[in-house]
Computed example of a mutant assay.
Amino acid sequence: MSDDSVVGPGPGSGHQQGRAETPEERSDRNWNELLQELRVMQTGVQILTGFLLTLPFQPRFAELTAYQRGVYLVLVLLSAATTGLAIAPVAMHRHLFRRHMKPRLVTSADRMTRAALVLLTLVVAGVVSLVFDVVVGHGAGLVVGGVALVALLALWTVLPALVRRRR
């Protein structure tokens, strides 16, 4: 979600920062921006979860080692939790609709979305690790899964922090 208070020239430019909007308008804008982000994330999470749920029905699934089956089951649980967190803001909106609680809704939905992104990072890195483990070997699975985890953390956490700091 974008910063809800600063738009325009950077610090030291001599220009006033911020938007001329009421708290209600800010909540509406933040909610709409969050919904756009959730639409992108929900699609990916649902596809990934669907992929994981079909694996036990594949002939080669029986050949997985105990370790691979354990990793798979953890990934299914993490993926289900990610799906739940990514959809929870919509359910929360339904329960709070017309109750004049949009600022609290936006704050809660933002926290749930952040938590879902953390879980999604683990699920994606875990799936990459599992695939490499099955196809190439256990060592490759650990290395590539670790690289995927670091890359996703860099893209989804470090890069935004760098952009925010350079503003």
Rank of each mutant, 00 (worst) to 15 (best):
F51Q: 01
T65P: 08
L55V: 09
L53G: 08
A20T: 13
I47T: 09
P11G: 10
Q16V: 09
V6W: 12
R104W: 15
F61D: 01
L130W: 02
T43K: 07
T82Q: 10
G8M: 05
F61H: 00
V123A: 02
P11F: 13
G10H: 05
T65M: 12
T82N: 11
T54F: 11
A66K: 14
G126I: 00
L73S: 11
P89Q: 00
L159V: 10
A80Y: 04
F61R: 03
R167W: 09
V163P: 05
L105M: 06
G12Y: 10
F97V: 03
V128N: 02
R165Q: 07
L155F: 06
L77D: 14
W156P: 02
I87V: 09
V150P: 09
R99M: 03
S79I: 15
R29A: 14
G18S: 00
A66V: 08
L78R: 01
V74K: 00
Q46I: 14
D133N: 01
A115E: 07
L48I: 00
F132A: 06
V136K: 04
A88Y: 06
V106A: 03
A88M: 01
L52S: 08
H95C: 04
G70M: 04
A125F: 03
F51G: 13
T22E: 03
P160V: 02
A109K: 00
S27D: 00
L96G: 03
G126E: 10
E33I: 13
L120S: 10
Q36K: 07
T43S: 15
G12P: 02
S13G: 06
G145T: 03
V106M: 06
P56Q: 00
E37S: 15
P56H: 01
G145D: 09
M101C: 08
R114Q: 15
Q42I: 09
L117D: 10
L153H: 06
Y67W: 15
D110W: 03
V158N: 01
P9I: 12
R39M: 02
D28K: 06
L53H: 07
G84F: 04
T49E: 15
A161L: 03
S5N: 05
V135K: 06
L53A: 08
T107K: 15
V134N: 07
V163T: 05
T49N: 15
Y67Q: 12
V7K: 13
G126R: 08
P23A: 08
G44S: 13
P56S: 00
L73C: 14
V127L: 01
D4S: 15
G146N: 02
G18R: 11
Y67V: 11
M41F: 15
L53M: 08
T65R: 07
V118L: 14
T22H: 03
G8H: 09
D133W: 01
V127E: 01
L34I: 13
T43H: 06
V123C: 07
L152T: 09
L38H: 05
V123Y: 10
L162T: 10
M92S: 04
R167D: 13
F97K: 07
Q46A: 01
G12W: 08
F97T: 07
G141E: 00
D110M: 08
E24Q: 11
H15R: 12
G14W: 05
V135I: 11
P160R: 03
P23R: 14
R98Y: 12
G145S: 11
V123P: 09
G18T: 03
